[in-house]
Computed example of a mutant assay.
Amino acid sequence: MHFMNIPGLASSGPQHWQTIWEQQYPALFSRVMQENWDWPVKTDWVAQLQKQISELTGPTILVAHSLGCITVAHWAQEHSSDKIKGALLVAPADADLSKRLNFVIGFAPIPTVKLRFPSIVVASTNDMYATIARSQHFADSWGSEFINLGKKGHINAVSGLGDWSEGKEILQQLAGQRILLSHATGQEKLP
């Protein structure tokens, strides 16, 4: 199983769990690389995601954060791939209600089409970029399982999660196997 990280606005910095997971498991994780992380344009972000998905050679789970989740929703509305086996959608940013709409061109309205693959939406009760009710709405619309983490902010580096072991457990649940445990050695463990 391969995992493709899809960061949100400004990408995921060195203290973000996405980056930490990539460093811990370089053989398992890749990252979608957007040309412009600071001025996201939906058509560009979706096209880049599609490009990297089209180059996959094996089963892959998408691991998205914030605006990356909304990018996945737009991608799934326009494209499909038999290589995508699931998606972990963490702290989806509510582009529909964003005060930064001029920074996130084309992301609203957020698609409400059921995803063609298993997915889990993980959200927080005190996320400044989406209410818990809106996150639940996204999960319901996308046909995703919903996990409320309580007060974890935007579930990012500022939340102080480090390598976010709870997130690894959720990802393993989605993947249907234990794969991300031995971060001390950087080696994956399979059942």
Score class of each variant (00 low, 15 high):
177 Q>T: 12
170 I>W: 13
108 A>F: 03
68 G>Y: 12
89 L>Q: 07
38 D>P: 00
106 G>C: 07
73 A>D: 01
91 A>V: 09
77 Q>E: 15
52 Q>I: 05
168 K>P: 02
17 W>R: 04
88 L>W: 10
140 D>H: 11
170 I>Q: 11
175 A>H: 09
9 L>A: 06
76 A>M: 02
131 T>Q: 08
129 Y>L: 06
142 W>H: 02
149 L>K: 07
72 V>E: 08
84 I>P: 11
54 S>G: 04
84 I>H: 12
32 V>W: 08
112 T>P: 00
16 H>N: 12
143 G>E: 03
14 P>N: 08
182 S>G: 03
154 H>M: 12
115 L>Q: 13
133 A>Q: 14
38 D>L: 14
100 R>Y: 15
43 T>H: 09
120 I>L: 13
132 I>Y: 07
68 G>L: 10
88 L>H: 04
40 P>F: 06
79 H>Y: 13
178 R>K: 07
87 A>Y: 08
101 L>T: 12
117 F>E: 06
163 D>I: 00
145 E>P: 00
125 T>Q: 15
52 Q>F: 05
102 N>W: 12
182 S>Y: 01
41 V>P: 02
94 D>H: 10
165 S>A: 13
58 G>M: 03
137 H>G: 01
99 K>W: 10
155 I>E: 13
155 I>A: 13
183 H>F: 13
5 N>D: 00
79 H>V: 00
136 Q>G: 02
173 Q>H: 14
5 N>P: 00
126 N>C: 04
122 V>A: 07
29 F>N: 00
